[in-house]
Simulated assay, not measured.
Amino acid sequence: MRSGLAILLLILLSGYAYAQSDSSTTAVPDSTAASIHSSDTLIRYRINGVYLKSIWQDLKYTVARPAHWEKRDYIRLGVVAGVTGVLLAGDYGVKQFFTHHQSNFTTSVTDQIEPFGNAYSPYLVAGMYVAGVIAHDRNLEHGSLMAAKSLVISTVIYATLKSIVRRGRPTYYDSPFNFDPPFTNDKQHTSFPSGHSLTVMTVATAMAELYGKDHPWVPWVAYGIAGLTGVTRLYENRHWSSDVWVGLALGHFVTKSIFRHHRELEHKKAMKLLAVSL
């Protein structure tokens, strides 16, 4: 995953691109609708200090989001926490199930899916950027920049969490409750959360946000691949089921927050233009 992210960052920092929002428009009075177009509210980033600063701003926004949650957000948190608790109780049983259901065919299949959480996802984002630049496709460039930003921020949060919660991997321990003190360097205690699951879900959520409205099949395919990638981590005995679940949930939450922030910024821009035109 580190090599994939390094290549992604290198490509992104090697050229220029623009980021734009979804195709939604801000409602304005009839008298000013003719003078304010959806293109006027777009926020476009060039790969420079402004874009890098936006990554920091999005990181702060994402970390602070819980302070602005509404009732429905706490309900979702309760669902995530509840499922996490159930999986914690069943982690050992899930490990035993996959351990006793290995086959050459299944292994050959999981070997093809597992890289989606490691190499494929970062390379996909980098490939989108290159293709967008070559084809002069602003929408594709926008998608790559937003996905890249989501991937960088989710990785920062994931790495911080993993350095604090030093959970033993099922590869080395039978007990799902084997922990080391925070910030230790023992590689055997790097199980929580699943980085593969977080990475692939981050990119899957970005694809769903970018293309799901116009192509309803995209979220089904993207989230399906993300889920299967998580299953491969269980099959390969690299993570506990609760590691995978939290990784998926965290990647989804972070990416949703970043896209939400982008829409909010464009809404503020539209309101400023409206105020000036009145």
Rank of each mutant, 00 (worst) to 15 (best):
H239R: 08
I258R: 01
F259P: 05
W240Q: 06
E266R: 15
S197Q: 00
I225C: 02
L265V: 09
A208P: 08
A222N: 09
D214M: 12
L210P: 12
S191Q: 05
P216K: 06
L265Y: 10
H215S: 14
P216M: 05
H239D: 01
W217E: 10
H252I: 01
K272D: 15
M207P: 04
R233Q: 02
F259T: 05
W220I: 07
D243N: 10
A270D: 14
S194N: 00
S241L: 09
H262K: 11
F253V: 01
G212F: 13
P193H: 11
G212D: 11
K269C: 14
T205P: 04
T229P: 07
S191K: 02
M271G: 10
W220N: 06
R263Y: 07
R260V: 04
S191L: 06
S257M: 08
L198A: 06
V218Q: 03
K268A: 15
M271R: 15
K213C: 11
G195N: 10
I258C: 10
A249C: 07
T232M: 05
S242A: 05
V221M: 07
S197P: 08
R238H: 14
R233N: 01
S194A: 10
K272T: 15
K268G: 14
S242R: 02
R238S: 12
L234R: 13
G230Q: 06
L198I: 06
P219L: 07
L198G: 08
W217V: 01
L234T: 05
Y211C: 12
V244G: 04
V221N: 05
V218Y: 14
F192R: 04
T202G: 09
S194W: 02
H239W: 09
P193E: 09
L228P: 10
A204G: 04
G227M: 05
V200M: 08
K272A: 15
A208F: 10
H196R: 03
P193A: 12
H215M: 14
W217C: 03
L265F: 00
H196M: 09
W240S: 09
D214F: 11
S257K: 01
S197K: 06
L265A: 11
T190V: 06
L210S: 14
V203G: 01
V246Y: 00
R238W: 13
T190K: 03
H261L: 11
L210D: 15
R238C: 13
L228I: 07
S197L: 02
I225E: 00
L228H: 03
N237L: 11
S197F: 08
I258M: 04
H261Y: 13
V231F: 02
D214V: 07
G212C: 11
A226P: 11
P193N: 10
H239I: 11
R263A: 08
V221T: 08
K269W: 14
L265C: 06
F253L: 00
F259L: 08
R233T: 04
H262M: 13
A208Y: 13
T202W: 05
G212K: 04
W220S: 00
K268C: 13
K272W: 14
G251V: 09
E236K: 15
V254E: 03
S194K: 04
R263S: 11
L265K: 11
F192C: 10
K272C: 13
D214N: 14
R263E: 10
L250K: 06
S257Y: 06
T232F: 03
H239E: 02
V218D: 08
L210Q: 15
H215N: 15
H252F: 06
F192N: 04
V246S: 08
F192D: 04
F253Q: 00
H189V: 07
W240P: 03
V246M: 04
A270V: 14
